[in-house]
């Protein structure tokens, strides 16, 4: 359904039981999180992931705590989505992943976040009755891809980060029969996540996409200035400070029904700050962009992250990009 007629909901990351109630009370409706069951952890290293976060602090510490979190979310009126979004699973892994999906459905989770088309088929073949959300890892970037995934059982698409607002609007208009979720805060990856194989194994380290890469042409000479500046911009920006606040009205009008905050493994205080801010900004969201709105979004950005926004942190740089040079 095209959901521009109703208010979008906030989806927030969670990785501990005690985070559930504060996040819901702060304004989140959906929570998403993952777990590494002991039988998986005993067998596979973190480079063989069950979900797209390859460091332990992003996961719930145990199945029992995750179960309580799912039930508490439901009791409090929220919805929980379990991440099973590795790009692929081998045959020996698939039964365990399907079993986890079945367990989540019985426990009260509202959805699974998946990326492997093989897993989608396996879940349906095994009769796992739970809505399936396509991770951005699945890369549904056009209506034909969405149509393909929808026929496999996908009910919501998490939009790839590289799509522009115009492309998102065109996609939803062409394929309005599923829900759409868009990234709004944190985690502005410089690469297409489903097509990136840099490993992110520690939240404490700078990740390879942010390393100080030196560029040179094949003769050792200077690269084109724009390409060089592009990479320098990525290095100098903190990808964790991603933001798409000023595009909210356009996303809502396009039919996006879920606004996503990235950051499994981040401290609760940071998660709460992000949810509260997004919730507050959404309350003031106009039907159309105007200067007052853009100014409020820029101020919100500065208060959230402690510095002015930049095109390298911006999810939708076509909105208000001409204002970034201002020193307001």
């Amino acid at each position: 359904m095209k959901s521009g007629i109703k208010n979008p909901q906030i989806l927030a990351p969670v990785n501990a039981l005690e985070e559930v109630v504060p996040l819901l009370e702060a304004g989140a409706h959906w929570l998403y999180g993952g777990v590494i069951p002991r039988e998986w952890a005993d067998r596979f290293p973190l480079t063989v992931p069950l979900n797209q976060r390859t460091f332990e602090s992003a996961q719930f510490p145990s199945m029992s705590e995750l179960e309580k979190a799912i039930k508490r979310t439901r009791t409090k009126g929220g919805a929980f989505a379990l991440t099973l979004n590795a790009p692929y699973y081998m045959d020996e892994q698939m039964p365990l992943v399907v079993e986890l999906g079945l367990w989540a459905a019985h426990t009260g989770a509202e959805a699974l976040i998946v990326a492997d088309p093989g897993l989608v088929v396996s879940l349906r073949n095994e009769g796992v009755e739970i809505p399936l959300h396509l991770s951005t890892m699945g890369i549904a970037a056009n209506a034909r891809s969405v149509n393909f995934y929808a026929r496999q059982g996908i009910t919501r698409v998490i939009l790839p980060r590289f799509l522009s607002l115009a492309q998102i609007a065109a996609l939803i208009e062409a394929m309005p029969s599923v829900e759409y979720e868009a990234f709004i805060l944190v985690g502005k990856c410089p690469h297409i996540e489903g097509l990136c194989t840099f490993i992110h194994d520690s939240p404490d380290r700078r990740w390879p996409c942010e390393w100080p890469w030196d560029l040179a042409d094949q003769a050792g000479g200077h690269p084109p200035v724009n390409v060089s500046r592009h990479l320098a911009g990525i290095r100098e920006s903190d990808r964790r400070d991603g933001c798409g606040l000023c595009a909210l009205p356009a996303l809502k009008a396009a039919g996006v029904s879920i606004f996503k905050i990235v950051g499994r493994g981040a401290p609760l205080e940071r998660k709460l700050r992000l949810v509260r801010r997004l919730s507050r900004v959404m309350e003031k969201m106009p039907d159309e962009l105007d200067e007052a709105w853009l100014r409020m979004c820029r101020e919100s950005y500065r208060e959230l992250y402690g510095h002015p926004c930049s095109e390298h942190n911006c999810y939708y740089p076509e909105v208000g990009s001409g204002d970034r040079g201002r020193k307001d």
């Binding site: 081998m90 045959d91 020996e92 698939m94 492997d116 093989g118 088929v121």
Partner: peptide
């Protein structure tokens, strides 16, 4: 080694 994917 992802048989369902290959079958698809």
């Amino acid at each position: 080694y992802d048989s369902p994917l290959l079958a698809l």
